[in-house]
Structures are given as C-alpha cells and as structure tokens.
Simulated assay, not measured.
Amino acid sequence: MTLFKLLVIFSFSILVTACSDDSTPSVSWQQATDGAYAATLSTDGSLSLVSSVHHGLSLWDVKQQRQLFQWDHQNQANNQVFLVKIAEGNRYAISASRDDFVVWDISNGQALGYWTLGESSIRDIALSENGQQVLIGLSEGKVIHLDLMSGRRLEFLGHTEKVNAVALSANGRYALTGGNDYQALFWDTQSAQVILRFPHQGRVTMVALESNGQYAFTADTGKLARIWAIPSGEQVSQLKLTARQNIFTYVNFAKQGEWLITGSAARKLSLWHVKTGQALQHWLVTPKQKTRPKSAVVYAGAMLDNDQLVSASSSGLIEVWNIKN
C-alpha cells in the first residue's frame, strides 16, 4: 500500500472518529423522574430549569445536582408549561404555557408577575438579561415585544404566517424571528424596523443570537442552517449537515461565538465550529424509559468548560459529555 493511500485512510479515520455519535455520558442524573415537557440550561451550564410531568417547575444547581426552587406556574393543577428560558446573566427566568407566562427572580425564587395573552397561542418566547423585556412569537404570525416595567407593547407584523422561533438580544433592543413564510427577520424592538432579512427555501424553525451580538443563526425544515455576521448580514458559514440530520429543537452559541451547540428530536446533541460550519462531535442523549422506538428530544445544551458539554432532554436527565481533543 502506498504512503498516499495510508495517509488518506488515516485522515478519513480521524474525521469519522471526530464526528461519530457517542452515547456514553461521563455524568448522568435525573431531575424529572417521569420525563419532562420542557427544560433549559443557563448559557454557562450552571443552572437548569425543568417543566416535569408530575412535579411542575423546578430550578436546579447543575454542578451540585441540587434543587434550588420548586415553582408553581399560575397555580395550575395540571402542568401545561411547554416553554422555559433562563436569561443571560442567570438572574431571571421565564416559563410559558400556550396563553400565559411568568417571569421569575432566580436570586430569591419569587415570581415577578403573571401575564395572560388574550389572543392566539404562544409558539416561542425570549427574555432580556434584566428580566424586563419579553419577546413572544404567536401562531397567527404576530410577534409581541413587551416592556414589563413601562407597560409598552409593540406588535411586529413583518411575518405573514405562523411564527416558529424568536430570539432577543441580551439588552432587549434587537429581535430575530423566523416563521412559516420562509424568512427570518432581524429587527429593532424600539421601532419595529427590519434591519436584515434572511430568506430560506423552507419554513424557518429555529433562530438564535450570539450573546455579544456578533452572530445570528437561522435554520429551516430542509437542510439549510446558516450563521450570519451581525450587523453586515453576510454569511459566515453553513452547517455541514448530513442525510441523518434532523430538524433542530435547540440552538445556542457558546464561548464568545466560537462554537454552536444544537439539539434534535432524534436524541442528537452536536457541537459545531462557527467559522467553518464543521461538526466537531455528536452525542446521543439517553432515551426516555419505556419508549419504542427509543427516543428523546434534546431540549438544551451548554458548555461547562472547554472539555465538557451538559445536556437536558425529554427523558428528564441532565447528562455531561466529554469533548474529544
């Protein structure tokens, strides 16, 4: 065998190893015994918020594996919370059902207020770092930006069909929204003026903004997932998706925009390089018990440090994964 062939085989084996699925977590613990309707992680992976099947809402310290607060969303007898988010800075969190939401103060575990929407159902929600501004995507195609302190309400009508995903900058000034009208829009929450348009070939199902405001992410129902520079709107990279890639259920930037973390409904947690769109590594989270076929939805992921990722899934598990060097 020639030296060239050996080098080709060696290089290919390294690529396959780096991007192969790994389903063995280094740490795993249960935060919802019978599964979760929704779950999220703080950007630094230190906190998790879960909406469980039988025990309502609970906030956890991930590193200590300890419950911090048990919350009751609107005193509901049956838990209907399907959206939970922890704002940048780990000071505030938000939970939402189809028609109402609650903002929580993480420092003392108290609810800052309860709000009900008397219109179409909530599809996605986001919260600013100071806990004062909320962005709500609705099934009728409208996006609402609320300032909870002043009571100011802005209705954004840039989408013509159902809104699937929303993201809000840490300071609440800018929004990124995606819908069934095949477009993602980056706009000013003070004026409702569209700043950038990101057209797609299918329904836009996922959007994300990098915490420092330098990148945006948009993905559709096809195989188009792209990272854009803000404010220029130029494409930075396109994720190198495979035939096995599923629609994303979670996306977030990590490490000052160096990496992108994604999750899918087919158990897959992935880490991508932002500048190239290349996958560094994939993991398969543990499936929910007694499911056939074995399945789990990845609700959230975060980098604990340079060597580990943490995930939260519908199986009710928090799992820690080692990143290969």
Rank of each mutant, 00 (worst) to 15 (best):
L284K: 05
S23C: 11
N252K: 02
Q183A: 10
D100N: 10
S42M: 13
I94D: 07
D105E: 09
D124E: 06
Q235N: 04
S169R: 00
I323F: 12
Y215M: 03
M1H: 07
T276M: 06
R152K: 09
D124Y: 07
G178N: 01
W71T: 13
K268I: 15
G222W: 00
A302I: 04
G316K: 05
S314Q: 05
L304I: 08
D124G: 08
V8Q: 15
S232H: 04
Y182A: 09
W187G: 00
F12Y: 12
A302V: 04
K290S: 09
V310G: 08
T2M: 12
F4W: 12
A165K: 12
A312W: 00
L271V: 11
G151C: 08
R203F: 13
G113C: 09
G137M: 09
Q31R: 13
I14L: 15
A32Y: 15
N246D: 12
L154V: 06
K142R: 08
L168P: 05
V194W: 01
G222K: 04
Q238M: 06
S121T: 12
K142D: 00
N212E: 08
R292G: 02
D34A: 09
E258C: 03
L112W: 01
Q67V: 04
Q289Y: 06
V84Y: 01
N78W: 15
E88V: 05
L154R: 13
F248L: 07
D188I: 05
R203H: 06
K240D: 11
D181F: 00
N322Y: 08
Q80H: 14
L196V: 03
A208Q: 04
E210S: 05
T2R: 13
L135P: 00
Y182D: 12
Q76A: 09
L260N: 01
I318H: 08
W29V: 10
Q235S: 00
T189F: 02
G113W: 00
K85L: 07
G131Y: 02
A265G: 13
E210R: 04
S120E: 10
E258G: 04
A77Y: 06
G178F: 00
K294V: 06
R123K: 01
L6W: 11
S121H: 04
I106W: 01
T2D: 14
K268G: 05
W60H: 09
S270C: 13
G118N: 06
T286D: 09
S28F: 07
N75G: 15
V62G: 10
L185H: 09
A18C: 14
D307H: 12
L6S: 14
V298E: 02
T17C: 11
D124K: 11
D307I: 11
L41E: 03
L138H: 03
F198P: 01
M206K: 09
R173C: 01
A192W: 10
L148R: 07
L135D: 01
T177F: 04
H282Q: 05
D99S: 09
M206D: 02
W272P: 10
T249E: 03
L176A: 08
T24E: 14
W272Q: 04
V285M: 03
S270H: 02
A167R: 12
Q65A: 15
A243V: 03
T249R: 09
S97D: 12
L127A: 04
W321T: 10
K5Y: 03
E258F: 00
L157M: 10
N246P: 00
G109F: 02
W228Y: 03
L49D: 04
V27T: 05
G213S: 10
S58F: 12
K63W: 10
A18E: 07
D147S: 07
